[in-house]
């Protein structure tokens, strides 16, 4: 089930997008989310599409792969489109079959809004596909750093995030292992009435909890043994470096925003 999900998975490659500073990528996503709402006519949408596909091609992640991974989300996009198509009743009727009518405005909004949705998802996937989770964490830690002044525990939060990221694959393996062990003892996780299936979760969850607690305890011991005693006095090994390409990419996005403003109606 998890095998086919690519959302949130990192695909290693050597591309300019991969090499961007995670902070610039995070800022770009943030800006992009705002900018998308400027577009309101075919020209501006075309511009957004061109920009997004430029980013996709720069990332060197195979397009086929992105689409395959986005399949579950594409249904949502299609649903959004149909919703607008059927429920908007403005403009001229462009199609009619009995009581069923499609209005011009419906078609227009359907296409635009689902496109907006689609482009947003595409851009966010590019971020997660080209940035390791730990880079995203570092980026967030750095961007949130000013919040330290108001006693916001940025270091602890970042450490928690990075340890969680570190243990997700371990926990998945563990889940798989315990599921198999209990299946071998006659538990059926995949079929049967809902009530039975809910009951089947207990023999999975309890061992998972027990082992997670044990892990957490051992990890804490290991961390202590290696001299961890909070964020104070700690140096940082990972360093982010903001380069010309980051400034350039951000400027490109600002330029796009300006163009959209000029072209919107």
């Amino acid at each position: 089930m998890m095998d086919k999900m690519i959302f949130g998975r990192y695909v290693p490659a050597q591309s300019i997008i991969h090499r961007l500073d995670p902070r610039s990528k995070l800022l770009m996503i943030f800006l992009f989310v705002c900018i998308v709402f400027i577009a309101n006519n075919p020209a501006t949408y075309a511009l957004l599409v061109v920009y997004t596909f430029l980013m996709v091609s720069l990332s060197k992640v195979p397009f086929r792969f992105i689409i395959a991974g986005l399949k579950p989300v594409l249904w949502l996009v299609l649903f959004t489109m149909l919703l607008h198509l059927f429920l908007t009743k403005e403009g001229e009727i462009i199609f009619q079959a009995g009581w069923f009518k499609i209005y011009e405005e419906g078609l227009r909004q359907g296409i635009f809004i689902s496109m907006r949705f689609f482009l947003l998802i595409l851009m966010t996937s590019i971020l997660t596909l080209t940035t390791t989770p730990i880079e995203i964490t570092d980026g967030l830690e750095s961007l949130l750093h000013p919040l330290n002044k108001v006693k916001f525990p940025v270091h602890e939060l970042a450490l928690m995030m990075s340890i969680s990221l570190r243990f997700i694959p371990t926990l998945m393996q563990e889940t798989d292992k315990i599921m198999k062990a209990q299946t071998a003892r006659g538990v059926d996780f995949t079929s049967g009435p809902i009530k039975e299936r809910m009951k089947a979760i207990i023999p999975l969850l309890i061992p998972l909890f027990v082992s997670s607690f044990k892990r957490a305890e051992e990890l804490a011991t290991a961390m202590e043994a290696r001299g961890y005693r909070g964020g104070e006095g700690r140096t940082k090994y990972r360093q982010l470096s903001w380069g010309f390409k980051d400034t350039f990419m951000l400027l490109l996005l600002v330029l796009l925003a300006l163009l959209l403003f000029l072209l919107r109606t």
């Binding site: 390791t132 989770p133 730990i134 990075s162 340890i163 990221l165 570190r166 371990t170 044990k214 892990r215 051992e218 990890l219 011991t221 290991a222 961390m223 043994a225 290696r226």
Partner: peptide, 13 residues
């Protein structure tokens, strides 16, 4: 110290 369980002492990503 190097502990028994290889997984539970690996802190970094």
């Amino acid at each position: 110290m190097v502990f028994q369980n290889p997984d539970n002492q690996f802190v970094g990503t």
